[in-house]
Structures are given as structure tokens and as C-alpha cells.
Design a protein around this nucleic acid. Structure first.
Length: 705
RNA sequence: GCCGGGGUGGCGGAACUGGUAGACGCGCCGGAUUCAAAAUCCGGUUUCCGAAAGGAAGUGGGGGUUCGAUUCCCCCCUCCGGCACCA
């Protein structure tokens, strides 16, 4: 990376696997514990029953373990969570004030947080003391509820299974799947009646309760009310299982619909809804919500799709979670003076679970509170924890007294953050969350970690993602030896805009090399011509003016491409065009050479961010004593952009039929008349009635006949 | 399934605010230079018709709005990223 000329400051290097680094996230975790920002609850993992280990979603292939080939089960185990949901509104609202982030990423994050306003409703369950609570954003469809469904892990389902072998078998079947959302959303929707009835709170009717594989314990309350007439998934499920479908919403335009033929999910006007008939969505929503609130059976509430961040991993490689379990004191955070909890490295791998569990010297520890024998947590942190704050630590990597110090106040937020689009949600959401946790701990005043975000594309080689896994990487060292660092840099900038995937091409690298040689020769040949006279703008001939216009148009375009658009590929293309124009411009006069000199200086300066080594040398070649890096960016001379004539395209009925050269200050009528006079245009206008002439000054004329 | 982003010559890509589709580069073809080759330079290169002038078609597919659509709207196909334990 040094040979490529990247100016990384290696004195700021951090290594997230070192205790000097991870002790601070252990410390922050204990602070979060004190504030109630972390908690432990049961949650689902992929369990490989043969290898006796927890698998990542990626390690589950078609529902089987990648090594054992065993059918994976969902299993619930206690895990630590960070309360990112406590910041849901802030994380959502701030997106509106982040102009430096791409809209696509902000949209993805908004959808991910998924704020929705709705109502929590309780339904009495026949024969049970505890009512069933569901969340809905469509209380206006309440009269259309024809069944309810709970998750396989829901207490009501578990209870029903105890007395019903079929239900028990179905619940077991539901667990035979991995925990990935994509799997749950695409698998066949299955369900079974539990033989339990729920009482509809408004009609008093019995509603059957089902258990269904698409209802998740971890979402909301683990129970849903089903309105098959007005919800796509409920409709399909009802059709499949012969459940009744009831229309309770009618289209606003008064048209008739057949709810048995097609689901109707739009908001409309209520029908078949008892006292709440004939109401708009808002009125029905409020009327029903009020009734529930007044009767104490429900409340308006805000629901988020965003779930708390599960940080426990049942793996050895990672930062130990700084918790000690004591029979008397429960979970106790490791006191600050006992941090860091260092991951032991003299371990034996058994192939079954984390080796930390088999290390009494690690596990057995005195309770920090009462001193009794206690046990250390053997789970480690999700590695996303490490990547959620490293950028701030760059400011003060050497501080062994604090997580961040006053240097972070100077350097953060990060001005420009670059990463792959695959990080659009998880990493970038966790980092935004962590930044706020650090802020609320008094470590920083900064809320948003990254002011400007660039999401770069992948590099492909032969159509496949370039990666060590696939063994299709390109060795930059080899290319640097063969062509020099500037050629490699130029190709990477030129091949595609940064946010797009880049197709590696050896021929393309060769082409960049050729261009740099032409660039070099153009400057050298010019300098070989001897001394250059001062540029006298007033005395230029037409061709010299044209050349000079090209220079200043290029300065305008390249400055904009680099500064505003960040399209480095088009900036390189424009530089190539300028060099091509200069090379073709053969004029050895004093004025001609002065114009060329100006153009070459501009392009040397403007290519320097991309090919710094060559440009540094060429700047000296052009006769400058000052180092290029200390020279200001070239400025556009607006007067150079003015042209006396403009080429205008002429269309007839929108089809290109000719071009005319018109005076730059010609009025619309004159331009139109000149367009009409063009011989080829005449061929298409002749004998037809001209209905309209559209003139776009400086661009085109369209004659409608 | 849901969310986000793509699909333009043989290839990478350009066209920024609805106004010349294919800039720039690669590749290929022809020429110059050379004993020859490499390198370099010059010219050509969307497809089809035509000697040319010029014409027709054309931006994943279908429809629409407009004088004019790669660009805006609707429907569809397809590829890529993400879907909370790959990071």
C-alpha cells in the first residue's frame, strides 16, 4: 500500500484482536450494563445436533450443517443484547439531516428500522387467565379477524402441544429450519389449529387460534391477528386452510370487489364492522383505538422492525464478554480494575463448542460482588462490536487510560468514510448506535460517526468477486513493478465509477499505461520546444481560442467530477480528451505554445490526485520550482468559455436531420429560420405544414410538421 | 418473500436538470514506420441498407406521458447487494 502511494498514517494502526483495544469495548459494555442498555434473554440460534455447535446462517446450506450435513434445528439459548432500539427514533430522525450519505443507504436504514404506528390489542383466551396481545397497524380491519396465529415457541402453543401429539409434532417440525429471515419468508406457510378459541373483543365471537411457522417469537409479541380479506399473507393462508374470509373494507371509489377472488389491501371505508361502519381509515383507526384504551384492553403504540443487537457468540475467537455468573448475585459485570478479560491463547480445540468452556482456569473465578465461587461467561462478542468504533480509536490508539480522549474531539466525525455497499445496514447502523452510546457515556460530543459516505463496488475478475477465497486476486506488486504505481491507480479510477463494481482488465491496465506515456511525451515534447512566452489572451486567433476554451471547459468539468460528483472515471476521460486536443493542436507560434502550456499545466495539476508521482515530476519538467502538492487547484477563466458560434442540432419531428452553426447571440427566430434553411432539413419539411418550431438555445431546434 | 441498486456497441463505460445515444478507453480492422517484429503514429469501428450522400432500427421486454424519453410513470423479466451468527 505504501508503494501505491497511499498516504496511510501507520502510527495510528489499531489491532482489534489485541487486549489494549478490546478492553475498551469490554469497559463500555460494563457501563452499558449499569445503565440497563444491555440485557440477557433467550434467543434463537442454528443448532447443529451432530457437531454439537452453533452455526452461522452462512454455514447452513439448504437447512443442513455445512460440515455435518445434519438437519439444523432452531434452538433457544440465553444471549446478551444491546438496546439499539432505545435509539431507534434518533437513528431514524437523524437520517433526514445527513446530506453526505447516499439516498439508497438512508432508505435501506429507514426501512430496516421500520417505525410503524399502531395499536396493541388484547384478546381474551377461552379457559386462560392471560390474554393474548397482538400489534396491528390496521385496527380498522379488526372486524375482519377470522383467526389468530402464534409462533411455535409461544407459551399457548407449548401448552397445547402438551395435550396433543399432532400439535407437538408440528411444533417440532417448525423448529427444523434455520433462523434466517429469508428462509422463513420464502418457505411454505404452514399452520395447525390449536383447538383453543380466542374471544373477539368487539363481537364476542369465537376466533380459532392457530400455530404457524411464519409467526416469529422474536418479532413483536409472537402472535398476530389474521385479517385474510385485507392482508396478502393472511389471505393465502386462509385460502389454503379453508378459513373464512370476511370483507370489512370497501374501496373508496365505491366499486364492488369479490374478496374470495382477490385480497384488498388498500385503505378504504369500513363495512360489516358493527358500530364502526362507514368510517375512513383514520376514523376507524381512532375509534377502535379509543375503545381499547378506554376499556383498558389496549393502547396506541409505536412498533419497530429493528430488533435489539444480539452480541453473544458461542465461539472462541473473539472478545470475551466481561460478565461473571454468581449463584447469589446473578450476572455481575467485571469491575474496571479487572479489565481486560484476556482471551487465553493456550487452548485445546475439541471440535465441540468453545474451548473456553473446558478451561477451569478461565471459567472459575470469584464473584466480584460477594467473593463466592462463580463462573465466567464463555461467549464472546460479535466482531461487529470491534468494527463499530475503530475509526474513533484511530485518533488516540495509544491511550491506555481511556477509550477516547480530546484528540477524538479534534478528528471525529470522520469526514469521508468509504466501504462496500454490503455494509449499508448492519455495520453502518451498529457504528451509528455505538457512537451515540459513547456520546452518552461522555466520551465524545459527536452523534454521527461519518459525515460523508461513499459506498464502493466490488472488484470482479473474470466475472467473479475478487477474493482470497476464490484465488482470483491480482497482485498489485507485480503490476507496480511492470507499470509503476500510477498506472495501477489510474486504471482503478478509470474503469468504473467508484460505487459500481469494477471489472478487472489486464488490457485496460495496459491502456492506462499507454495514456501515461502519451501524457509524459506531450509534456516533454512541449518543453523540448524551448522557452514559452507569456499568454496574451487578447491576441489569440480562432484556433487558439478554441484550444483555450477546451482547457477551461476541462477545468470546469474535472473540478466538478472530482469535487461534487465523485465520478473519477469521467474526470480521467476528460483529462484524456484534453491531452488528445493538445496533441492534435499543432501551433508553434508564441501564442500557440503559451496556450498549450496553460493546458498542460492544468491537466498535470488535475491528474495529480490520481497519478501523483508522474505529475510531481512533470510539474518540475514544466519549469516549476514549487512542489506540485503546494500549488492551488486551477481556476476556470469564464471569459475563455465564451464562443462566437454555436453548433445547433436540427430535428424534424424529433429525428435528427442536420446541424447548423449559429451566432452565439442569435435570437430564437433567427435560429429557427437558419434551421429551416438547411438543405437536408428542407427535404423533410417540403410540402408539409410546419406546426411548431421548438428552439432550445445552444442545444437544438425541433421542427414539428 | 421483503428492502436497496443495476441491465446501453464485441468489452469496461459516457450521456449530470427531458434535448445530438455510444464521450473516453479496451478490442478489432485498415494504413504508416520497420529487413521483420514489438513499440509508436494515422484512419475506421452500434446494427442493417447504400459506392456515397443519406436512410431505417436501436439503451432488458411491454405499455404510457411528451414536440422530444437511456432519463418521467405503470406492468413484467433478469442480475447484484442486504435480510439481523460471513463481515
Amino acid at each position: 500500500m505504501n508503494r501505491l502511494g497511499y498516504a496511510y498514517d501507520w502510527t495510528r494502526e489499531v489491532m482489534t484482536c489485541r487486549p489494549e483495544y478490546y478492553r475498551w469495548e469490554q469497559w463500555l459494555f460494563t457501563k452499558m450494563f449499569e445503565k440497563g442498555l444491555v440485557y440477557r434473554k433467550n434467543s434463537v440460534v442454528n443448532w447443529d445436533p451432530v457437531d454439537q455447535t452453533v452455526l452461522a446462517n452462512e454455514q447452513v446450506i439448504d437447512g443442513r450443517g455445512w460440515r455435518s450435513d445434519a438437519l439444523v434445528e432452531r434452538r433457544e439459548i440465553p444471549q446478551w443484547f444491546m438496546k439499539i432500539t432505545a435509539y431507534a427514533d434518533e437513528l431514524l430522525d437523524e437520517l433526514d439531516r445527513m446530506p453526505g450519505w447516499p439516498d439508497s443507504v438512508k432508505t435501506m436504514q429507514r426501512n430496516w428500522i421500520g417505525r410503524s404506528e399502531g395499536v396493541e390489542l388484547t384478546f381474551a383466551v377461552a379457559g386462560e387467565d392471560e390474554p393474548l396481545t397482538v400489534f396491528t397497524t390496521r385496527p380498522d380491519t379488526l372486524f375482519g379477524v377470522t383467526y389468530m396465529a402464534v409462533a411455535a415457541e409461544h407459551p399457548l402453543a407449548v401448552k397445547a402441544a402438551a395435550g396433543n401429539a399432532e400439535v407437538a409434532a408440528f411444533i417440532e417440525e417448525c423448529k427444523q429450519t434455520d433462523a434466517a429471515e429469508a428462509t422463513l419468508e420464502t418457505m411454505e406457510k404452514k399452520g395447525m389449529a390449536l383447538g383453543i378459541n380466542v374471544i373477539h373483543p368487539l363481537t364476542g365471537e369465537d376466533v380459532p387460534l392457530w400455530v404457524a411457522n411464519f409467526v416469529l417469537m422474536s418479532y413483536g409479541t409472537g402472535a398476530v391477528m389474521a385479517v385474510p380479506g385485507h392482508d396478502e399473507r393472511d389471505w393465502e393462508f386462509a385460502k389454503k386452510h379453508g378459513l373464512p374470509i370476511k370483507q370489512v373494507i370497501a374501496p373508496l371509489d365505491g366499486s364492488e370487489i369479490d374478496i374470495e377472488e382477490a385480497v384488498f389491501i388498500d385503505k378504504g371505508v369500513t363495512v360489516n364492522s358493527g358500530d364502526y361502519d362507514g368510517l375512513s381509515y383514520e376514523d376507524a383507526f381512532n375509534g377502535i383505538a379509543d375503545w381499547f384504551e378506554e376499556s383498558g384492553r389496549g393502547r396506541r403504540t409505536v412498533n419497530y422492525r429493528l430488533r435489539d443487537w444480539g452480541v453473544s457468540r458461542q465461539r472462541y475467537w473473539g472478545t470475551p464478554i466481561p460478565i461473571i455468573y454468581c449463584d447469589d448475585c446473578d450476572a455481575v459485570p467485571v469491575p474496571e480494575d479487572q479489565l481486560p478479560v484476556v482471551l487465553p491463547e493456550d487452548v485445546e480445540f475439541t471440535g465441540h463448542g468453545s474451548p473456553l468452556k473446558d478451561m477451569p482456569e478461565f471459567v472459575n473465578v470469584a464473584c466480584p460482588k460477594c467473593g463466592k465461587d462463580a463462573r465466567r461467561e464463555t461467549d464472546t462478542f460479535d466482531t461487529f462490536v470491534e468494527s463499530s468504533w475503530y475509526f474513533a480509536r484511530y485518533a488516540c490508539p495509544d491511550n491506555d487510560k481511556a477509550m477516547l480522549d480530546e484528540r477524538a474531539a479534534y478528528w471525529t466525525p470522520v469526514d469521508q468514510y468509504t466501504g462496500g455497499i454490503e455494509h449499508a445496514i448492519l455495520h453502518l447502523m451498529y457504528a451509528r448506535f455505538f457512537q451515540r452510546v459513547m456520546r452518552d457515556e461522555g466520551l465524545t460530543d459527536v452523534s454521527e460517526p461519518f459525515t460523508n459516505l461513499m459506498t464502493q463496488g466490488m472488484v470482479l475478475k473474470d466475472g467473479a468477486k475478487m477474493s482470497k477465497n476464490k484465488g482470483n486476486t491480482v497482485d498489485p506488486q507485480e503490476l507496480i513493478v511492470k507499470y509503476g504505481a500510477d498506472t495501477v491507480r489510474l486504471f482503478m479510477m478509470f474503469a468504473a465509477p467508484p460505487e459500481q463494481t469494477l471489472e478487472w482488465s489486464d488490457d485496460g491496465v495496459q491502456g492506462s499505461f499507454r495514456f501515461l506515456k502519451r501524457f509524459w511525451n506531450a509534456v516533454q515534447n512541449h518543453v523540448d520546444g524551448g522557452k514559452v512566452a507569456d499568454l496574451d489572451v487578447a491576441s489569440l486567433n480562432a484556433a487558439q481560442k478554441d484550444m483555450r476554451r477546451k482547457t477551461h471547459q476541462s477545468i470546469a468539468k474535472i473540478s466538478d467530477d472530482l469535487g461534487r460528483r465523485a465520478t473519477f472515471n469521467t474526470a480521467v476521460a476528460a483529462s484524456m480528451e484534453l491531452i488528445n486536443s493538445i496533441t492534435r493542436f499543432e501551433d508553434d507560434s508564441d501564442a500557440g505554445r503559451a496556450v498549450v502550456h496553460e493546458g498542460l499545466e492544468a491537466v498535470v495539476l488535475m491528474l495529480s490526485p490520481m497519478v501523483p508521482h508522474i505529475c510531481h515530476a512533470l510539474w518540475a519538467t514544466l519549469g516549476h520550482k514549487t512542489a506540485l502538492i503546494d500549488v492551488p487547484w486551477p481556476q476556470v477563466d469564464e471569459s475563455a468559455l465564451e464562443a462566437e458560434m454555436a453548433e445547433i442540432v436540427v430535428q424534424v419531428n424529433g429525428k435528427l436531420r442536420g446541424r447548423v452553426s449559429v451566432a452565439a447571440d442569435a435570437d430564437r427566430d433567427a435560429i429557427g429560420q437558419q434551421a429551416l434553411a438547411d438543405p437536408n432539413v428542407q427535404r423533410f419539411v417540403e410540402g408539409k405544414e410546419v406546426r411548431k418550431i421548438i428552439v432550445v438555445p445552444g442545444r437544438l431546434v425541433n421542427i414539428v410538421v
